[in-house]
Design a protein around this nucleic acid. Structure first.
Lengths: 335, 335
DNA sequence: CGTCTTATGCAAAACGATGTGAGAGGAATC
DNA sequence: GATTCCTCTCACATCGTTTTGCATAAGACG
């Protein structure tokens, strides 16, 4: 152990008495190598503890073998699950997964994306609510693969993975209508975000299917947060007559709605029913436990990862794809 | 735009009519460059949209500029906050942060660490509860910087950042004792984990300071999860007489404890007081809201990042350091 | 026993940045 | 006006892989 020399492919080749090319071939399999030498090389690699240098490999191949997941809210437990789903698929392929938070302003998202492009990540899963066309453009223009969570399918802007938000929300509203609720308020999140729009569409659809008109006064738009939910709920509860049920844009908003209802001395679901969306852990912690829609975070993460993988290994461009995952209504105590 | 050539440092040098060396120097600042040329080069870089290739840079410098955060439980909201803290410090420095989950078995952790070493990350923050000496060894032996969350200070095993778990837990128990509770059960998490041991020590310390003996029957060990908390609580509530208060290893366990108490038709805090640890979002969502100890996740993340940064840029070895962050008791309704 | 395939192995040129040793120009000093 | 000393710039080797075009050994066949 005289020298702290990092073991490289040349050392392996020397120890196995073959050329570096041969070692590279047994690793990549791009050209056939005899069983005998292959076994020998693999044994030497094991003995020496050789690990190919990703920088050198990346320099040569032009791939960093790194992808990123960009999220907009650290406190939303949906994202870690998604990340776990991605890891499950991508780690065995040798990919490094970077989870980046772009909380707050659009500038933050700008700088996060700039950072990722600087780092030459191979692909980006953009799960940030405050993403705009400009961001999609920047990413694809840099030749980086892109997967979005919901949005309109646009050939320029990469693949899409999404849960059936519209269908899920329609199910929730239909559930309330079946239980006899009629004045149903919607406390929605950012209306310029895809989930915001799709869930709003689901609300409309369910009412239409039951032959009811939409009362615009019963729809308020806030942010997808606990306080956003509380604010919106107060607005609706000030109406006369007040709504019999509050359908919320996500679970966090629903928790905020319950805060607001309780603050006014009312009860859930006795005076006002409440529903959420996403089925995060907290949804089953609150009292009463929340009726919500299960959003398959893990599966969404896996789907994103597979899409990226295809895109990165396959043919350069074969049109854009959209994966829609089903959602499931979870009826608990709040309705 | 005849060729889709990726713009490299040579293109910049040509466009600015200087040598590549000069461009490199204005970027790194390792040697002085005249204001005039520096300005010219920077302008050209801007115009051409040049981004230095991290693979090439990494190959030459031997640094990947990537670090990892390894966690053991995706559902624990403590970790995303920590990651955000790390990102805050590390992203401006150009680092890529990979969050890896090593849920479940020790083999999972093995493979995660193996993966990270394959990827030549510069540093690892090991926040996984199921980490063992072997893992610390593997990481430091590969020449990778290591930061651990709690544990004994060992010069071989890198720096440590931790909150004052013992002190925090002692505060909780003291708080209960001051309120007159005497039979205080401890529903602790994994006893081979650092938080488990330190929090147990805090429990002991508080009792000792109040001149009380420790009743081993009042201490149970489960996993740091909701169901773990429920199981342990059932065990203690079966005792006769049953404990007046349940001190839990973390907030999730405390939620489980409240499940168990409610299941038996008892009330919190009327029949049994409950305390948690960490002050996660859910702690203020449950009813009654949980008395707990605020664990400064964001600050811990920042501290880890700074330690890594120092270690990666500074002198090779200057002994190990330990950063201990204070904790704060949050009294709510459950006690 | 010679020729033609196939099956393998090799040497060397990339990839895009960094950093060293050395050279050129200009200012300061005597 | 010559010498010294800076200040700035340059060409070139280097990091550890991948990959292409050739060379060679082994086997098949007439």
């Amino acid at each position: 152990m005289s020298k702290e020399h990092r073991v490289g492919i040349a050392d392996v080749a020397a120890a196995a008495a073959v050329s570096v090319t041969t070692v590279s071939h047994v690793l990549s399999g791009r050209r056939p190598v005899s069983e005998r030498t292959k076994a020998k090389v693999l044994r030497v690699i094991e003995e020496l503890g050789y690990r190919p240098d990703p920088s050198a490999r990346g320099l040569r191949t032009g791939r960093s073998h790194a992808v990123a997941l960009v999220v907009s809210d650290v406190t939303n437990p949906f994202y870690p699950l998604m990340a776990a789903g991605m890891q499950e698929v991508l780690q065995p392929e040798g990919f490094l997964i970077s989870v980046c938070t772009a909380q707050g302003t659009t500038q933050d998202l700008d700088s996060v994306i700039d950072h990722l492009l600087n780092r030459r990540v191979d692909g980006v899963v953009l799960a940030s609510l405050n993403a705009q066309d400009r961001h999609f453009n920047d990413i694809t223009a840099a030749g980086t693969a892109l997967v979005r969570l919901s949005g309109e399918l646009d050939p320029r802007f990469g693949d899409i993975v999404r849960a059936d938000d519209t269908g899920g929300m329609a199910d929730v509203v239909a559930h309330l209508l079946e239980r006899g609720y009629r004045r149903i308020g919607l406390v929605n999140g950012e209306s310029d975000s895809a989930p915001g729009q799709l869930r709003l569409a689901g609300y409309h659809r369910a009412l239409r299917e039951f032959g009811l008109d939409v009362d615009e006064d019963l729809i308020v738009t806030e942010s997808f947060t606990r306080t956003g939910g509380a604010n919106g709920s107060h607005t609706l509860l000030n109406l006369n007559p007040k709504p019999e049920a509050l359908v919320c844009g996500n679970d966090l908003m629903a928790v905020g709605a319950m805060d607001a209802i309780r603050e006014r001395g009312l009860t859930v679901p006795g005076d006002v029913a409440v529903t959420g969306y996403d089925d995060i852990e907290a949804a089953s912690l609150v009292t009463p436990r929340l009726t919500t829609v299960h959003n398959p975070a893990l599966e969404i993460g896996r789907a994103c990862a597979r899409l990226l993988l295809d895109r990165l290994s396959g043919t350069p461009s074969e049109g854009v794809r959209e994966v829609v995952l089903p959602q499931k209504l979870i009826v608990r105590e709040s309705t």
